[in-house]
């Protein structure tokens, strides 16, 4: 009745189903940026579904300037050892060696991220070549589908990380959802031209038109600072939320983290969100995007 090791099929790792399936398990959850094992534990205790290990949160990357790179392996190891939830880490766009190192360290997901300084101005990494799954940012449907074609197993909006301003994440999510809705209304003859316009493979475009959604999980990222921000992104169709600087740049990180988790689960219940929003202390100050020089718009990185 049950299998024994001798009759069991050999296990297959790194399949698309295992990579995309991993992101399915994170749905409805909050993924938090952390820079120390201590912060990782606070995030886990607050109910985070995963943490993003990095050396500086985006707000500090903005402040300090310079080239932002993959984090120190010691720091990533420390965070992996501190928590039992999945640990993600960022590589620069197109920096396949940073991605190889992160895979060797055993991180659960690699974020090929525009928050770090791009290493290649033409090519993103070939993500099919890795066992570790990738999440990538997108500002529109075409960009999302190009990343999926390269092997991304999860998509997030780019937003404008490190600003505490949710406006760009809202724009990106509305754009992606709007373009998906438009595809659903097209007939087969029109999908070829749509693929050309989107600069994305026809097969993926047809799949999205049939499913009415991306073939991978879609999260929101960039600028979420409050429980209401997180709930807004979910109401707009994000299946979960990344929170970067918003938690550990605020007055009471543990409380804010737990509050954002609550609001993400009960995103359609204003009473719960109201309760979650009480007495959280100071939110991160934030930056207005229109005062940000064009060269400092991270969302323009990647293509």
């Amino acid at each position: 009745m049950s299998t024994t090791p001798s009759t069991a099929s050999s296990p297959e790792t790194g399949t698309a189903r295992v990579k995309r399936g991993m992101a399915e398990q994170l749905k409805g959850g909050v993924i938090m940026d952390v820079v120390t094992p201590e912060q990782a534990r606070i995030a886990e205790d607050a109910g985070a579904v995963a943490v993003m290990a990095l050396e500086r949160v985006p707000a500090d990357i903005r402040k300090h300037g310079g080239v932002a790179r993959m984090s120190d392996p010691d720091m990533i190891d420390g965070i992996i050892a501190a928590v039992s939830i999945p640990v993600m880490a960022k590589s620069r766009i197109g920096h396949v060696v940073e991605a190889q190192v992160l895979q060797a360290l055993g991180v659960d997901y690699i974020d090929e991220s525009e928050v770090l300084t791009p290493a290649d101005e033409v090519n993103h990494s070939d993500k099919w070549a890795f066992t570790t799954p990738f999440v990538c940012g997108a500002t529109n449907l075409g960009e999302a589908l190009r990343r999926i074609a390269e092997g991304a197993a999860m998509i997030r909006s780019k937003g404008e990380a490190g600003t505490g301003n949710v406006v760009e994440a809202v724009r990106h999510l509305r754009q992606i959802k709007g373009e998906i809705a438009r595809l659903k209304g097209l007939d087969n003859n029109e999908l070829y031209a749509a693929a050309k316009e989107l600069r994305a493979p026809y097969e993926l475009v047809r799949e999205v038109a049939e499913l009415g959604k991306l073939p991978v999980v879609l999260f929101s990222a960039g600028g979420v600072a409050t429980p209401a921000d997180a709930a807004l992104m979910r109401q707009l169709g994000a299946e979960g939320v990344f929170v970067g600087s918003g938690i550990f740049k605020s007055g009471d990180p543990a409380k804010r983290a737990a509050a954002i988790v609550r609001a993400t689960t009960f995103f359609d219940d204003p009473k719960v969100i109201a309760d979650a929003s009480r007495n959280l202390g100071e939110a991160m100050v934030g930056i207005n995007i229109d005062t940000l020089p064009e060269s400092e718009h991270y969302a323009n990185r990647g293509w």
Binding site: T3, P11, E12, T13, G14, R17, G21, Q25, Q103
Partner: peptide, 26 residues
């Protein structure tokens, strides 16, 4: 961890028609 996540066929008692595809994620 995720790098060890895998797919394999699994015989389940009470499920007729051959093994199921087992997707094991962490």
């Amino acid at each position: 961890r995720q790098n060890e996540s895998f797919e394999a066929s699994v015989e389940v008692a009470g499920v007729e028609g051959g093994p199921v595809e087992g997707v094991f994620i962490r």
